[in-house]
């Protein structure tokens, strides 16, 4: 039950886009049509699902204050948490590079449809943000970060596909010249965010 609650919460209540503005850059840049938005969304879910548990394990067994206790009593009060930014981003960058190479070799059709977005994901704030929020949340076992990663990924995916669908329609509407493109997109996202705020009071 606890996991279901975490899952639903990370999709709707703590939505990466509407509650924390994470991954905004690629969210705004790659949401012009539903097809590419779909590809990027799936890639984000996939990368988040792997990097978040890896970073959780690194955080729990290497970086946290006292995490190195398993090496012996001398290491009990070593605190490496100041290294967490660099370790997390190295894991994420290495993982995306690895996935890119594997997909390029074995799944060329997927690569040609997704190829450009994979390297972009290394600098997607939603991925690093997921790891940093994980560090603040003190998850106790491996299942929690996996569920959290899946939920946040799906939340991000829903948000980008919804915006892309709206923008496809928006292209035919009569918007003031100065507001066209970027301006109206921001206001649309703001209104979508307000709609998402109804989830905020939900207790599970």
């Amino acid at each position: 039950m606890e996991y279901v609650s975490l899952f639903v919460k990370s999709i709707f209540v703590d939505n990466m886009i509407f509650a924390y503005f994470l991954g905004m850059c690629s969210y705004l840049a790659v949401s012009k049509n539903v097809k590419t938005a779909n590809g990027l969304g799936l890639a984000v879910i996939f990368v988040l699902l792997f990097t978040l548990p890896i970073n959780w394990a690194l955080n729990t067994f290497v970086l946290q204050p006292g995490a190195l206790k398993w090496l012996g009593p001398n290491f009990a009060d070593v605190d490496l948490s100041f290294l967490s930014f660099i370790i997390f981003i190295a894991v994420i960058a290495a993982f995306t590079q690895l996935v890119e190479m594997i997909v390029e070799k074995y799944l060329p059709s997927l690569y040609s449809s997704l190829g450009i977005y994979l390297p972009l994901i290394a600098v997607n704030c939603a991925i690093l943000g997921g790891s940093l929020f994980m560090q603040q949340r003190d998850f106790t076992n491996l299942a929690e970060p996996v569920v959290y990663a899946l939920g946040s990924g799906i939340g991000w995916y829903l948000a980008i596909v919804a915006l892309a669908a709206i923008r496809e329609k928006l292209a035919y509407s009569n918007v003031p010249a100065a507001l066209k493109g970027t301006g109206i997109t921001f206001i649309t996202v703001g209104l979508m965010g307000m709609a998402f705020m109804i989830f905020m009071g939900i207790q599970l």
Binding site: A178, T182, M194
Partner: peptide, 25 residues
């Protein structure tokens, strides 16, 4: 609340582009 920041930014972009017509899409 978070959504208002987006709307405010949208308005800043609107004002900026209304002054500088070259930037309009």
């Amino acid at each position: 609340l978070p959504p208002f920041a987006l709307i405010l930014l949208g308005c800043i972009i609107w004002a900026h582009r209304a002054f500088d017509k070259e930037l309009q899409e």
